[in-house]
Design a protein around this nucleic acid. Structure first.
Lengths: 135, 135
DNA sequence: TTACTTGCAAATCATTTGCAAACGT
DNA sequence: ACGTTTGCAAATGATTTGCAAGTAA
């Protein structure tokens, strides 16, 4: 946990909030939540700390094209699927076959693969139910 | 090509530019390029047309998390890899196995898969060469 | 004719940044 | 003591939007 940086009150509380808050919050949601404990904290500080914590690997940054950044206190290997109806982000287990497929795809392209980002979109079980009821 | 909308001079020239311009341009790059032929066109018009052309399927929108939108006149199935050194976007053939893997991953999650976006990042052949020379 | 489009400028929205004061080690 | 971090406010950058005038069908 020693990153060569200081563990300020703000940083500790932000980290704590993200670890407890299992909703993959946006920076703004973290800001709102943390303000209950630190009413004078600024949004800038939240952004700076989220960025720093992500760079030191204490949290994960989830970036999905065209959407706000989200943050995840769960560092274990897993992917996310976004519900196209309600927008909710759900954890799903990681599947190592993606990388295998990528590596094969790129085999004779001359590229050296560095990372793969897979974004899944679908309808979540709750929204599926609602859809069915509408019939 | 009939989309139920009007084919204005601006729209035709933007479409033409994207089809000829094989660089996966950003909206701003399209704007700069198209201004050679239409000096009074506005960036707003470029955005509106790129969006409309993407919605009617005449071009593809390439959205990569944290990056500007890019546009592709090549509608054939293919994916892209971003060079982490020079930022260049390169076409690579589509690999249908991604969807197979996704479908299996989600089999018992209750989700109905709608779409998958795979973003690859790596070092392109040109930048690899530069790296080697630096030794 | 008339609904769709344009150019322009201002607005939006998430995120970043400059700065002087405050703080952690 | 020192470099790091904070709160605040202003800046940024990409994209969107309101509006009155212009244009394709």
């Amino acid at each position: 946990m020693n990153t060569g940086k200081r563990m300020t009150r703000q940083r500790r509380i932000i980290l704590d909030d993200i670890r407890k808050n299992r909703i993959h919050p946006t920076a703004d949601e973290v800001y709102k939540s943390v303000r209950k404990r630190l009413p004078r904290i600024s949004l800038g500080t939240v952004y700076r700390n989220l960025d720093l914590l992500a760079r030191t690997g204490e949290i994960r940054k989830i970036s999905i094209a065209g959407k706000q950044m989200r943050f995840d206190g769960d560092k274990s290997d897993h992917m996310h699927i976004t519900c196209v109806r309600c927008g909710k982000l759900t954890d799903i287990p990681d599947d190592p076959r993606y990388c295998d497929v990528c590596r094969e795809t790129l085999a004779d392209s001359g590229f050296v693969l560095q990372s793969v980002s897979v974004e899944l979109f679908g309808v979540c079980p709750d929204c599926r139910e609602d859809e069915d009821e509408e019939r």
